[in-house]
């Protein structure tokens, strides 16, 4: 049992531990983390755009500072603008107000310092895996030989050494996403943006990819902003979780995850994990009020005559 810094640690089993309680090791880790330089900063960031339903405020007045080598998960209900947040940082979506600073420099357009991994893989289907991974290096004007060697190294790192000369259509979804990660990292970004990268994968592949991502992150100097709607995934991966609320997308809470590292799947049953999980649940799925659109009981219509009632 990790010792707890707070005095009111005598939590009963009925109400799980406070998610703000951190063991000494975890608290020390966060202290060290906050001492690192700020890599990514959002200053009064707002983003509006026109859609079929009129003008939408996707993000409003977001203020966030993310440190070097931090892994931040962004979570929130659907329509909270979490994907927009990633796209704005990447420079793919213009901001309406405020700004994004990377190492203190404001960014306005996409650039190789912010790599991105999309849910839809987006590998170039006409290129082999090596050529795909080389793409970012080619854009920087690197010469063929070293670029090729480096691309192969990245493919080896994500465990696809045997598939150098395969084409994307020959791979499974998980493998494609590993290539996409290798391709983004090969370009040498400071920040890796991941927009629900494992959302299209089946649960077991997904767990593998999460383990894989943590392994890569341990070995590479990279700051990760990971968009997800899966709370367990967020807790498993993140140093801090940025919770957004919907309509308009605003910061609800920026939480330090108390689960100690290294993370493993069997930490799911620890009190820290459960406390965190319960808190996220209460933030993202608040108990429906009488006026909420989700709160309407289904009309009860009897459609079976069999008399074998199951409930």
């Amino acid at each position: 049992m990790p010792s707890v810094t707070h005095s009111d640690s005598s939590s009963s089993p009925a109400s799980p531990a406070d998610y703000r309680l951190q063991s000494e090791a975890v608290a020390a880790r966060f202290a060290a983390l906050h001492a690192r330089p700020v890599v990514l900063e959002a200053e009064h960031l707002s983003c509006e755009f026109d859609s079929e339903r009129g003008r939408v405020t996707a993000l409003r007045d977001i203020n966030v500072r993310i440190h070097r080598r931090e892994l931040v998960c962004v979570i929130g209900p659907s329509g909270c603008g979490k994907s927009t947040f990633a796209r704005v940082i990447a420079g793919l979506q213009p901001v309406s107000a405020g700004r994004i600073l990377v190492d203190g420099v404001a960014v306005t357009a996409p650039g190789p310092d912010r790599g991105m991994v999309f849910q839809g893989y987006t590998l170039f289907p006409w290129l082999t895996l090596t050529q795909n991974v080389r793409f970012g290096l080619d854009m920087q004007g690197r010469s063929d030989g070293p670029a090729d060697a480096e691309a192969r190294q990245w493919l080896d790192l994500v465990g696809l050494g045997k598939f150098h000369d395969s084409y994307p259509h020959q791979l499974s979804g998980g493998m494609k996403q590993r290539v996409a990660i290798a391709r983004a990292l090969a370009a040498g970004p400071k920040i890796l943006l991941m927009d629900e990268p494992f959302g299209a994968l089946d649960p077991s592949t997904r767990a593998q990819m999460q383990a894989h991502l943590m392994e890569i992150w341990r070995n590479v100097d990279i700051t990760i902003v990971f968009i997800t709607h899966d709370m367990d995934e967020a807790i498993l991966l993140a140093d801090r979780i940025l919770v957004l609320k919907a309509n308009p997308g605003e910061v609800q809470e920026f939480i330090e995850v108390p689960v100690p590292r290294p993370r493993r799947l069997d930490q799911f049953n620890t009190p820290e994990f459960q406390a965190m999980r319960q808190h996220l649940d209460s933030l993202i799925h608040p108990a429906p009020g009488p006026n909420s659109p989700d709160h309407c009981p289904l009309p009860f219509i009897r459609l079976t005559q069999a008399g074998d009632d199951v409930e």
């Binding site: 990447a90 420079g91 793919l92 357009a109 996409p110 650039g111 190789p112 912010r114 790599g115 991105m116 999309f118 839809g120 987006t122 170039f124 289907p125 006409w126 290129l127 793409f135 970012g136 080619d138 854009m139 920087q140 996409a180 391709r183 983004a184 370009a187 943006l193």
Partner: peptide
């Protein structure tokens, strides 16, 4: 696919290279 263009942009491709290295091979 606009997603391919976005991916290429986040890898540092701009204008001419975007056309030559992504658009043309993708629609060839």
């Amino acid at each position: 696919d606009p997603a391919l263009l976005e991916a290429a942009q986040t890898l540092g491709a701009k204008r001419g290279k975007l056309v030559r290295r992504v658009i043309i091979p993708a629609c060839l």
